[in-house]
Write a protein that binds this DNA or RNA. Structure first.
Lengths: 318, 318
DNA sequence: TACATTTACATAACCGGTTATGTAAATACT
DNA sequence: AGTATTTACATAACCGGTTATGTAAATGTA
């Protein structure tokens, strides 16, 4: 199909489905050619029973990679065709033990020539090809089992976006974004507190003028994240990492990490030895990120925030 | 799936379906990742309209390789989602002309990053593979368009069976097979006539003792076909090719041809110059085979058979 | 031992496609 | 011009799978 060369890999699912449809359509005709009274969709069940003798419904489903209801349905049909017999004679009365009937075994003899002919036909097709479809499918199965297509695409997305994200210092025109980005997550999980209003409404006075810093993450000319470094009046800690916020639309793409890394670097530049932060354990991805950045849990610091139920520190070794 | 290594290529359809299912499942999640309000199954329609502007339902179906009702359904859904608009304003009032709405075009901009990420992810997957799935699919599409899987399997079947078929001279123990094989096709298409009974009940007297010959085709120790060479009392023709019969279970695999070739050779050995035959035009595969063997239509010979509506001759040039 | 949970299976409803069929408009054929 | 055929599309019913759900038996636990 020329069409799929235009769409590119986005439509690989559709393309596969069409090839599958074409092949299964022919499969039905091939069974007819051998006068084998077997619906192609029965084949996996038939095969596994011919090979391994009696089995329960769930066992079959597991072996052939179908859902259990699918196997139930197939077994009902095949029993109707006289190929299978079911019994619940085992000590576990729930188990439906299925096996080929004499007719089924006869069919198994009859079908063997078909195996070799199909095998040979596909073999010849592969010889005539530069690419090995059967081998490629097997390889994709393995690779996708290791890491799903979803994960692979997300990885690409992160890589691309990381390149496109720029971190810039706070400017007056960022004031609204700084506030709305933070308000968004605070209101989702908690409630706005007095300290929030102070810092978000007056970043200049409450953060910058006191010797702190605010960084903004830009992506495609839009502000998508922010993070502040707040000067602390404390003998132990120099700065607090605070007001970290990333737009929900681009969360999970490493932008938070970019911001955190930039803020930590800023703290280093300012000569800090230790950074403090407060958070809440419901924000699991954030806590996990802080941990991978080297932050360690600490206890017992006073805090103005009700939502704070975890405190962490990062020792800056230079 | 280890299972498919056991089944072999017989289950290539099932294997493809499972891979397809896994990929389309991930595809849906990927759209979610980009917050693109597009069902994966809409993609081919969306793509073609984004690329080529307005189109009718049938045109779209043809381009993307779906059935027309499938496209109708997708368009109804996409219109409901506000992505498409339909109108019947053209001079042909039957045509439903479909195009993207403004919202649809917006989505098209939004989705472009997804294209490149998916493309890159699949690209990386291919780099990590020894086999190229995308290339293999394209190749199979081409090869199967040239000759279907069904035809390829049938070819293998013929090759194998031809090897396994042996042609032997008639012996007394073949009498029943000789009769039943012929009765089968005669009764299917016509009725038994007096001449049939004579020849089938007494092959020794009516065919062999008069200087004719009968050959039997054996396949897996069973008689699956027969063909007779009947001595004619005629100044022009030496022999008649008659009583050609092949078991319906193995028809279409070249066994008839084997028999005919052997009978012709037998006629040569007996010093014949011309072979005659009678048949009926409803037996199309047989007539076609006779023609490819060199038989030519002739007219006006007397015949004892009611079912005879075509007469042919083969001139044996040695 | 009684009750909650898990397991094995069947059934129902859905999903993304298909083929079959119906209908109205356009076209071809006397 | 009137009628038969073809075309464009919609709708219905089916197909081979799925997930969701119900039920009875087996198992775990207080």
């Amino acid at each position: 199909m020329d069409f799929f060369e235009k769409t590119g890999k986005m439509a690989i699912g559709s393309r596969l489905r069409q090839l599958t449809a074409k092949i299964t359509e022919d499969a039905a005709k091939i069974y007819g050619l051998y006068q084998v009274a077997l619906s192609p969709k029965w084949f996996p069940v038939f095969f596994v029973l011919a090979r391994e003798g009696e089995k329960t419904v769930t066992e079959i489903a597991h072996t052939i990679g179908h859902s259990q209801p699918s196997v139930s349905k197939i077994i009902r049909e095949m029993t109707g065709a006289g190929l299978l017999e079911q019994h619940r004679k085992s000590d576990d009365k729930r188990r439906n033990v299925v096996a080929l009937t004499a007719k089924g075994h006869l069919l198994n003899e009859h079908i063997k020539m078909q195996y070799t002919d199909v095998e040979n036909a596909v073999e010849k097709l592969t010889e005539a090809s530069a690419h090995d479809l059967w081998g490629a499918i097997a390889e994709w199965e393995t690779l996708l089992a290791q890491k799903s297509l979803y994960d692979r695409v997300r990885e690409q997305k992160r890589l691309r976006e990381k390149k496109e994200v720029t971190i810039v210092p706070f400017q007056a025109q960022h004031a609204t974004a700084f506030k709305t980005l933070n308000e968004a997550w605070i209101k989702t999980y908690f409630q706005m507190e007095d300290s929030d209003h102070r810092a978000l409404d007056h970043p200049q006075e409450y953060i910058l003028d006191r010797g702190g810093a605010i960084l903004m993450a830009l992506y495609q000319n839009e502000v998508v994240g922010t993070c502040a470094l707040v000067k602390m009046d404390d003998p132990e800690f120099d700065y607090e990492l605070a007001k970290m916020a990333v737009s929900s639309q681009v969360q999970g793409n490493g932008i938070g990490r970019c911001l955190a890394e930039a803020v930590i670097q800023k703290a280093r530049d300012l000569g800090a030895k230790k950074i403090y932060l407060e958070s809440n354990t419901v924000l699991k991805p954030a806590i996990a990120m802080y941990r991978t950045l080297g932050f360690q849990k600490i206890h017992g610091r006073p805090t103005p925030y009700k939502r704070c139920d975890i405190q962490m520190e990062l020792v800056l070794s230079d």
